[in-house]
Simulated assay, not measured.
Amino acid sequence: MASELSALLPDGLPPGRLIGATADAPLYWLSDDPVDAELYRRLVADHPRTGLWPVLAEFLEYDAKRPWDDPSELTPGPVTAIDAQSPAEVLQSFWSELLPDDEDLEEYTESLEPFGLTSPGLAGPGASAGSPDEFACWLAADEPPARLLLAKANRSADLPAVVGWNGPLNHSNDIAPLLTTLRSWEDRFGVRVVKLGFDTLDLSVAAPPTSEEHALHVAAEHWAFCPDTIELSPGALREYAADIQNANSWSFWWD
C-alpha cells in the first residue's frame, strides 16, 4: 500500500527514497544527489497544491549520512504541540532561563545591552520587500548544491517537527516552543525554512529589520532562540544587530 507521502510526491523528481521508521509511514522524501535551484523553485510554487515543503538537507562533515539518511536520530513530534505555545511567553522564558545567577551575570548584562536582565518582548513586524517564497528560492539558489528533503507541512516552520529534527537539543529538549517562535517570524518577517542540518537552521527573510533600533530588538529574540549565534560570535547584541539589519537571511547554530 502506498503511503500518504508517496501519493503526494509530484512527477519529475530525481532519484531518491522515502525515509522513516516504517515503509508505510515515512517522515520525508530525500533525494540521492544534490538538486538544482529550478527544482526547488518548482516545488515551492507547488506547495499550495501538494502540501509538501522542500528544504536543502545539510549533513555532518565527518559523517555524510547524519542525520537525514538514518531516522534513528530523529524524534518527530505532533504539530499540535506548537499550537499550545505563545511566542512572547516562550522568548521571555528562554531569556530568564539563560541568565546565570553567579558572577557571570554582569558580563551577560553588558553583552545584552540595552536590555540587560529584562526581555524586550516581541519586536514589531518588518516591511516586506517581496514574496517570502521568492526570497526562499533566492536563498536556495545562492547556497551550494545540496540534497533535497520533502515533507508534508502546512508551513515551513512546522517541517522541523514533522521530520523529527533535534538540532537545538543542547538549548531546549522541547522543539515546539522554538517552532512557535519560527511561526511568529514567518508572520512578522516573512521567513521560510530553506536549509536544515544536524544542528543548523537557515532562513530566508522577506521583511528584515531596516533600522538600528528594530534590528536590536530582533537580535534580542535571536539570543533567546539561539544564544550560541550571538555568544560565540560576535559576542554582543549590538554587534549582532548590525549583522542582521537589512539582511535577507538568518543562520543559526546550536553548539
Rank of each mutant, 00 (worst) to 15 (best):
L98G: 07
L43Q: 05
A57Y: 01
D69N: 15
V55H: 14
F135I: 05
L74D: 04
P132Q: 14
W138A: 15
P125C: 04
D102I: 08
S93P: 00
L52Q: 10
V79G: 08
D142F: 02
D133Q: 12
A127S: 05
Q85H: 07
P48C: 10
V79P: 04
E134S: 11
D46W: 15
V79H: 00
D69W: 02
A127D: 09
W138Y: 11
D142L: 08
P120W: 08
E73S: 08
P132N: 12
P78S: 12
P125N: 02
Q92K: 11
L112T: 01
P76F: 15
G121K: 15
G130T: 03
L98D: 01
S119L: 10
I82H: 15
E110S: 12
L99Y: 06
L105K: 03
A45L: 11
E103T: 09
G77W: 00
D101R: 14
G124E: 08
V55S: 05
L74N: 13
S96Q: 09
E106Q: 13
D104T: 10
W138S: 14
R147C: 04
A146Y: 15
E61D: 15
G77F: 01
E110Y: 11
A88K: 03
S119F: 06
S131R: 08
G121S: 09
L91P: 01
A45G: 03
S128F: 14
G126D: 10
D142C: 06
Y62Q: 09
E97I: 03
P145I: 07
A129C: 08
